[in-house]
Computed example of a mutant assay.
Amino acid sequence: MLNSIRVLVQNDDFDLGSEYQKLLANDTENGAVVTFTGLVRDYNQGHQVLGLTLEHYPGMTEKALETIALEAKQKWPLGRITIIHRVGSLGLSEQIVFVGVTSKHREAAFSASQFIMDYLKNDAPFWKKEQTTEGERWVEFNDKDKDALSRW
Rank of each mutant, 00 (worst) to 15 (best):
N142Y: 08
A72E: 01
L90C: 03
E29P: 00
G46T: 05
E55V: 02
P77H: 12
V40W: 10
S18L: 02
K63M: 00
G91W: 01
D27C: 05
F36Q: 02
V97L: 10
D147G: 04
A148C: 07
I116A: 07
E66Y: 07
W127M: 01
W127R: 09
Q45C: 03
E107P: 00
L92G: 05
P77A: 11
Q48V: 13
A148Q: 09
A72V: 00
L2I: 10
L16T: 14
L90Q: 04
L2N: 15
E136P: 02
V139P: 15
S111P: 04
E71F: 08
E55L: 02
L8Q: 15
K144T: 13
R151F: 08
M117L: 15
H56K: 01
F110H: 12
R86K: 11
K129Q: 09
V97S: 03
P58C: 01
F14A: 12
A25M: 01
R151L: 10
E62K: 12
G38H: 10
G91H: 15
V101R: 04
W127V: 05
K104A: 12
T133M: 02
K75R: 14
A32Q: 05
V87F: 11
Q131V: 10
I83R: 09
A25N: 08
L65P: 12
A109H: 02
G88Y: 03
R137F: 01
M117C: 13
T53K: 15
E62V: 06
I84C: 08
Q114A: 02
L39P: 02
T67Q: 09
H47N: 12
L8G: 00
H56C: 04
H56A: 06
V97Y: 10
L24C: 13
L16Y: 11
G88F: 03
F126D: 01
A109M: 03
D42R: 13
P58H: 09
G59T: 00
V40I: 13
D118G: 04
L65Y: 08
I5K: 04
L39K: 14
E71T: 11
L24W: 03
T28D: 15
F110R: 03
A25G: 00
A109P: 09
I96S: 03
W138F: 06
L50W: 04
S113Y: 06
I68N: 12
M117E: 02
V139W: 13
K73A: 06
S113Q: 06
D13Y: 04
V7C: 00
D12N: 14
T132C: 02
F36R: 06
H105N: 14
A148M: 07
V34T: 13
N142M: 04
L52T: 13
H47K: 15
I96E: 03
E55Q: 06
Q45H: 08
K146E: 10
A124M: 09
Q21W: 01
S111F: 03
G135H: 02
Q21R: 10
K129F: 09
G79V: 00
T102I: 07
I83G: 09
L149Q: 14
E19Y: 05
N142D: 15
E71W: 01
V40F: 08
V87P: 12
D27Y: 11
E136L: 03
F36A: 02
T35Y: 04
H85D: 00
